[in-house]
Design a binder for these strands. Structure first.
Ligand SMILES: [Mn+2]
Ligand SMILES: [Mn+2]
Ligand SMILES: [Mn+2]
Ligand SMILES: [Mn+2]
Lengths: 220, 220
DNA sequence: TTAGTTATTTTGATGAGTCAAAATAAATGT
DNA sequence: ACATTTATTTTGACTCATCAAAATAACTAA
C-alpha cells in the first residue's frame, strides 16, 4: 500500500495538472506539499521507480496511468469525506478540508463505498469540487468565474476553488455558496475590482483574484 | 501531537494493564504491537523522556497520568468509530476493528464529539467493550465468563474480549452476541469443554479458552 | 555572446521507527 | 550454589521522509 506521503504527492500532482496530461513543475509541487524542492526531486525519483510517475528531469513530472488511478481514489475519499462531515456531522465547511486531509488516508475502499451510498452518490463536495467516480472518471468541465463571466448576465455559483478557511468563511458570510444566484454588475480591470450582486442584497466588491476563485455558469 | 505509533503504544499499554496500575511487560507489549522486544525497549525509553510512561528497567512500564489521558482518548476514538461503522454504515462487526485501528489516529476531537452525539452517546461498542467517557472515565467492572460462571443460571452476554475476525464470526454464527440470553449446562474441566445453551436452539460445545472470551452477567 | 537570475538536482545530515543478533540480567531447577 | 533458561537491553544497521546548502542546468536580458 502507498504511504500517506505518497498519496499526498500523487493527489497534488493530479490537482496541479488540472486533471489533464500537463507536466507539473517541481517547484509547484514543493509549494503545494509545503516541502523544499530538493525533497520533491528525491521523492519523485522514488515514485518514478515504483511506476507511479514519469519524471522528465529539469522539466517536470506527470502521473502514469497507475499513479493517476491511486490519485483519483485518494481524491474521491477526500471529497466524499468532506460531504460526510458537512452533510451528516454538520461541520463547518471551512474546517472540513483539514479533517479530510488526514481521513483520506485512513479509510478503506469498503468504507468509501458505504459512505458514498449513505450520502446518495453525490457528484460534488460541499465546495462544488467534482467527486471522481468509482471507475475513476473526473468531471473536467471548464467554468467561467466572476472575474471572466459576462457582465449583467444572471449566474449560478457552481464551485469555490480555494480551500483556505479564511476565504471559505468570507464566501459563506456573503452568501456566495454553490447553488446561489448572482450577477456581476461591474468589472474594472484598471482598479482590479469586480462588483457582484445577489438578487436580494447590496452590491459586493471583490478583487479580481478573489472573483477568479468563484466558478459560475449561466442560469439555464 | 503524538504520532500514530505513539498512540498505538499507549493504547495497548492501557489495554494490557486492564485499565489499572499494573506494570506491563516489554514482551507483552511487543507481542501486542507485533514488533520485536528491542524495539519496544527503545520506544519506551523515548516515551519515558516525553513523560508518557514510567519505565522500570527489567520490570515493565506503566502509563503516567498524561500517557493515560492520551491512551483513553485514542481508545474512545477506536470504539466510537466501531459503533459508527456498525450502526451507521452497517459494516460487519468482525471487520471494524481493523478499520478503526487506522481511523482512531485520523479523526479530530471535534469529529469525535460529533460522532458521539450522532450515535447517542453509546456506553459500549458493538463488541460490548466500554467506551471511555469524554472526561476519561473507563468502566472497569469485572464480569464472569462462560468459563467461570455458575452452571445452569440464566445469563446475559455483555462482551466479547477477542477482536479477531475468526472468533467474532464464530460468535455471530452461533448467536452469542452481546445482549443475548444463554446458560451453561455443563462444564468439564478434564476435557476442557463447556456446553452452552440458548433458550431456543441446540447445545453448543466450546473450549474453556473460547468460553473465557465471552463475558456474561446474571439476568436480573 | 555573455553575465546574471531562477529552477532543479545533488550531497550530506537528521529523526522516527524498525530489525537482527549479541550482551546482560533475572528467574528457575536441581 | 551453580548451571540453564528466559526476558530484556544494547548495538549496529536499515528505510522513509525530510532539510540546508552547494552545484548545476536552463532561461533571460543586455
Ligand atoms: Mn492528505
Ligand atoms: Mn472540497
Ligand atoms: Mn491504531
Ligand atoms: Mn471493539
Amino acid at each position: 500500500m502507498a504511504t500517506s506521503t505518497v498519496e499526498n504527492y500523487l493527489k497534488h500532482m493530479l490537482l496541479l495538472s488540472e486533471g489533464g496530461e500537463e507536466l507539473v513543475s517541481m517547484g509547484a509541487l514543493a509549494e503545494a506539499l509545503a516541502v523544499v524542492p530538493g525533497t520533491v526531486t528525491t521523492m519523485v525519483k522514488a515514485l518514478a521507480d515504483s511506476g507511479h510517475v514519469e519524471h522528465r528531469p529539469r522539466q517536470g513530472v506527470r502521473l502514469t496511468a497507475e499513479g493517476r488511478r491511486v490519485a483519483l481514489n485518494v481524491l474521491r475519499k477526500h471529497r466524499l469525506v468532506e460531504c460526510f462531515l458537512v452533510n451528516v456531522l454538520k461541520m463547518d465547511w471551512a474546517a472540513v478540508d483539514t479533517e479530510a486531509e488526514q481521513l483520506e488516508h485512513a479509510i478503506s475502499d469498503e468504507v468509501l463505498d458505504r459512505l458514498d451510498a449513505l450520502l446518495g452518490h453525490p457528484a460534488t463536495d460541499p465546495h462544488g469540487d467534482p467527486i471522481p467516480s468509482r471507475q475513476g472518471k473526473l468531471d473536467s468541465q471548464v467554468y467561467a468565474t466572476l472575474a471572466t463571466c459576462v457582465v449583467e448576465k444572471p449566474l449560478r455559483i457552481v464551485r469555490i476553488t480555494d480551500q483556505s478557511a479564511e476565504f471559505l468563511q468570507f464566501v459563506e458570510q456573503n452568501r456566495l455558496l454553490p447553488g446561489e444566484s448572482v450577477r456581476v454588475t461591474e468589472r474594472n480591470l484598471a482598479s482590479g475590482l469586480v462588483t457582484a450582486k445577489k438578487t436580494a442584497g447590496r452590491p459586493l466588491a471583490l478583487s479580481l483574484a478573489a472573483a477568479g476563485k468563484i466558478l459560475v455558469q449561466p442560469t439555464r
